[in-house]
């Protein structure tokens, strides 16, 4: 289990995360909702230790990972997670296959001869054919990039995957395919997932729990059912996707 307690993160005078408290249950899918620039990526980057938080704790199986500074222990902390970047962050100087196999030599004992088999297996898991391995990332469509990126994450067998807006920028059908993939990872391998999204359809479909991030705090945490029924005006507005409501007024006042 991952427990985030009183997490704070600022960029200069911009207090992005003010006091984030959140529990991430093992083997479940937790979605984090929030508007653009609300600090969703910042939050999971702090979990991955790509950013240093300014205060609070992130307990992974009871151990606070925010205080780790030794580069080797830091690598061990990161080993717990897989991170799906919003734009894929595929290495564009390598083929798709080399991308998928990249983490293997650093994080696993799998011998080099077995890499082609791993590449094939992981590409199949995300619904891609073996031939894709020979392509360059620049030849891929948006949906394929996300899937290759997911295959690269799956290859290192993390315990928890952090997804940064996995469905943003995709057409509705591809979004649904990605949502199904996330669900499948949970069912097949029991991976814990943290999914950042503002795609309500996907969030309701895949989530066990949803957290709504607003003004640097988790304003509401609950099951999709609770989110559907809530009368919290902020969440209501976000869930309904309306331009009328407290969030708009807040923006205008600033």
């Amino acid at each position: 289990m991952i427990e985030i307690k009183h997490l704070k993160k600022s960029f200069g005078s911009h207090h992005v995360l003010r006091d984030v408290n959140l529990k991430i249950e093992d083997g479940k899918i937790t979605s984090i909702l929030g508007g653009s620039g609300s600090g969703k990526s910042t939050l999971i980057k702090c979990m991955m230790r790509l950013l240093d938080s300014d205060g609070g704790e992130i307990l992974v199986n009871g151990k606070d990972i925010t205080k780790v500074t030794n580069p080797f222990r830091l690598a061990a902390v990161r080993r717990h997670f897989g991170y799906l970047f919003q734009e894929g962050a595929l290495f564009d100087s390598m083929t798709v296959g080399e991308n998928v196999a990249f983490g293997l030599s650093y994080l696993t004992d799998i011998p080099k001869e077995k890499y082609p088999a791993v590449i094939k297996e992981k590409l199949a898991m995300v619904g891609l054919k073996e031939e894709v391995a020979k392509l360059n990332p620049s030849e891929l469509s948006g949906g394929m990039r996300k899937r290759v990126s997911l295959a690269r994450v799956l290859a290192i067998s993390p315990k928890c995957i952090l997804y940064d807006e996995p469905t943003t920028g995709l057409d509705p059908i591809m979004s649904d395919i990605i949502s199904d993939l996330i669900l499948e990872m949970k069912k097949k391998i029991g991976i814990t997932s943290v999914v950042i999204t503002h795609d309500m359809h996907s969030a309701f479909k895949i989530s066990d729990y949803i957290a709504f991030l607003y003004e640097g705090e988790i304003m509401l945490y609950g099951t999709p059912e609770e989110f559907r029924k809530t009368d919290n005006p902020y969440v209501r507005q976000f869930v309904d996707g309306s331009s009328h409501g407290p969030i708009q007024m807040k923006l205008m006042r600033e």
Binding site: R49, R78, Y83, Y106, L107
Partner: peptide, 21 residues
């Protein structure tokens, strides 16, 4: 230019997430 492009497209962060730096 190469490393800079990697930096702005989060490829440098990706290196950390895949066991190197």
């Amino acid at each position: 230019a190469h490393i800079g492009t990697m930096a702005v497209t989060e490829q440098l962060d990706a290196l950390y997430t895949l066991g190197t730096n």
